[in-house]
Structures are given as structure tokens and as C-alpha cells.
């Protein structure tokens, strides 16, 4: 595999030139240094640390000296009685959330786009964006207030039912609460991006369609939605890639001892087993399992969408 002499001279010259460049522009590399360092420390070192998923990690022995156990933690997670439940909880929560939540910002944007008076439009936007700025702790706190057995929702419902419903401790309500409150909080703000896309629509399209006798709904369907398609595609891919890591902070806060049968998802399980119970290796293994599935999903969806209509994320 000896290189031809000519090649090596060129590559030496190239190296020399690169070296010269770096020496001259070292300040640019100095600018990069803090970011590279932080990413290396807080993103790459944990990637090495994830090897504890294949070991029996003990803090005393450290990562290097802990014994290898292969896939033991993975098999014990996969065979544990609650694996199926936790896995399905995660999948259901995010899939239903995506299916129900994804169209709402699109519809909101289409609706707002029909408001012709700029002032009114601006005010509506101002109001429906607001919940986005409320913290997840406060949102969950509000849910506990509104949905408590003596809370306002039960007061209203008492007209129809004789017993108050304890929404927060009934596993049947967890997903609905999680998803609906998510839409309430995020749909308005998420519509911004679609509104922006709509404002770039060529007005001649609408004029021409109207002259041809197209109704408003026909124009929305054949023009506006077509305009939104590329944006929707990209956001959909991103959302599917994130399907395994959805809303952990909120799910954890919404958990009560009673609703765990539906509210325990992989991330909260990792937190409890890995950090709270100190089952480091097991937690790392479950987390790794989750990351690998996310990555696979992202790649698959991107591939499928690319095949279907040529839009792609990367």
C-alpha cells in the first residue's frame, strides 16, 4: 500500500499549508475551543460512560475496573414483567400525542391566515402564544388544581355525575390529560412557523384560483396546504425521531402512585432505577436501549419520507 512519491509530496505540502493556516488563524480555533471542550466533556464523555450498560458498575471500582457482563442488563429489562407496559406506555403516549397534536398548529395557522385585519390577528396571536411561556411545573400545578376532586372541572361535571372523578389518580385519564394540556400549551406557538410559510405564498395563485371559480375551501386545500407541506414534512420527521423521548419532565410531575400503570414511561423509569435507586448500569442500559430506538426511528422515517416525496432532513 505504498503511496506514490508524488502523492506524498503533495500531501506534505497540503499539511504544511494547513499548518500555516492554523498558525495564522489560530484565533478562530481559540473561538471554537470553549464549545469543543464543553461538547467533548458533557456529550462525548457520557458516550464513553454508557459502556457501564454492559458492565456491573460500582462507584467504588469506577468505570474501567467494573466487570463486563455483556447484555445482561438488557435481557433483564426486556424480560422484566413491566417491560411491555413501560414500552407501550411510552409508545402510546407519544404516538397519540403526535397524531392528535401535530395537525392542530397547522389548522390554527390556516385559520389565522384567513383573518384579514392585521390588528385583530396580532392580538389573537399574542393570546394563544402565551401558554408557551408558562413553566411545566406551573402547568402541572394548574392541572392538579383544575382536576382535583373538589376542583372547578368536577364542579361543572357534578351536574352530570353524582361522584367526583379523581382524574389525577385514575390511569385511564393520564394520556388524555397529558396530550390535551400539551396542545393547550404548545399549539399556538407552534403555529408561528406555519404562518410564516403561509405569508410567503404567491398571491397570484389565490387570485388565479378565485378567477377560475375555486371556493375558499378549495383554495385552502389546493394552495395553502401544498405550501405548508415541506414544513410539515420536516417537523414530522423531527417529531417521529423524538417519539421515544417525549415530555419526560411533564410526565414525571404528573405521576401519582395511582396512575403509574399508564404514566410510567421509559425516561421516568430510567430516572427512578438509575439515579434514585442507584441501579446505575441497569438505568444506563435502559437509556441506551431508548436512544438506539430513537436513532433507528429517525433514520427510517427520513428514508421513507425521502422515497415518498423527495423532502429530507439531512
Amino acid at each position: 500500500m505504498a503511496e506514490k512519491p508524488g502523492h506524498s509530496i503533495i500531501s506534505i505540502q497540503k499539511n504544511k499549508r494547513s499548518f500555516e493556516y492554523i498558525r495564522k488563524n489560530f484565533i478562530l480555533y481559540l473561538f471554537l475551543a470553549p464549545a469543543v471542550m464543553l461538547v467533548f466533556i458533557f456529550n462525548y464523555i457520557p458516550m464513553y460512560g454508557v459502556t457501564i450498560a454492559f458492565k456491573d458498575f460500582s462507584p467504588i471500582k469506577g468505570i474501567l475496573n467494573s466487570e463486563w457482563v455483556g447484555f445482561e442488563h438488557f435481557t433483564s429489562f426486556l424480560q422484566s414483567p413491566n417491560f411491555q407496559q413501560i414500552f407501550m406506555n411510552t409508545l402510546k403516549l407519544s404516538t397519540f400525542g403526535l397524531l392528535l397534536g401535530f395537525p392542530v398548529p397547522v389548522i390554527l395557522a390556516l385559520m389565522l391566515n384567513q383573518v384579514r385585519r392585521a390588528g385583530i390577528k396580532k392580538h389573537i396571536q399574542l393570546i394563544i402564544y402565551a401558554p408557551h411561556f408558562i413553566s411545566v411545573v406551573v402547568i402541572v400545578g394548574m392541572l392538579f388544581i383544575f382536576l382535583s376532586p373538589a376542583g372547578p372541572l368536577n364542579n361543572i361535571l357534578s351536574v352530570f355525575t353524582d361522584k367526583p372523578i379523581s382524574f389525577m389518580s385514575d390511569p385511564n385519564y393520564f394520556r388524555t390529560i397529558f396530550i390535551v394540556s400539551g396542545i393547550w400549551q404548545g399549539a399556538g406557538f407552534a403555529s408561528i412557523i406555519y404562518l410564516a410559510a403561509l405569508s410567503n405564498t404567491d398571491p397570484q395563485l389565490h387570485d388565479a384560483a378565485t378567477l377560475d371559480g375555486a371556493s375558499l375551501l378549495q383554495r385552502i386545500w389546493h394552495i395553502d396546504i401544498q405550501v405548508l407541506k415541506p414544513t410539515m414534512t420536516v417537523l414530522f420527521i423531527l417529531a417521529v425521531g423524538g417519539i421515544m423521548s417525549v415530555g419526560f419532565e411533564k410526565a414525571y410531575l404528573l405521576q401519582t402512585d395511582m396512575n403509574l400503570p399508564t404514566s410510567e414511561i421509559i425516561d421516568t423509569y430510567v430516572y427512578k432505577r438509575g439515579l434514585q435507586a442507584g441501579d446505575w448500569s441497569f438505568g444506563a442500559a435502559v437509556g441506551l436501549f431508548n436512544s438506539v430506538i430513537s436513532l433507528a426511528l429517525l433514520v427510517i422515517v427520513n428514508y421513507v419520507v425521502k422515497k415518498l416525496n423527495g423532502e429530507t432532513l439531512y
Binding site: V39, I41, F42, N43, Y44, I45, P46, M47, Y48, G49, V50, I52, P59, I63, D267, V270, Y271, G274, L275, W280, G283, A284, G287, L288, N290, S291, L295, L298
Partner: peptide, 15 residues
């Protein structure tokens, strides 16, 4: 690369 893969909660905590 870090956008597609990460070590996860437990290794980060240990670090």
C-alpha cells in the same frame, strides 16, 4: 453527531 446520539441520563449524572 451529538444531535443524533447521546450517552443518556445516568452516564451524564455520573460524569
Amino acid at each position: 453527531f451529538t444531535m443524533f446520539f447521546n450517552g443518556g441520563m445516568v452516564p451524564t449524572y455520573l460524569l
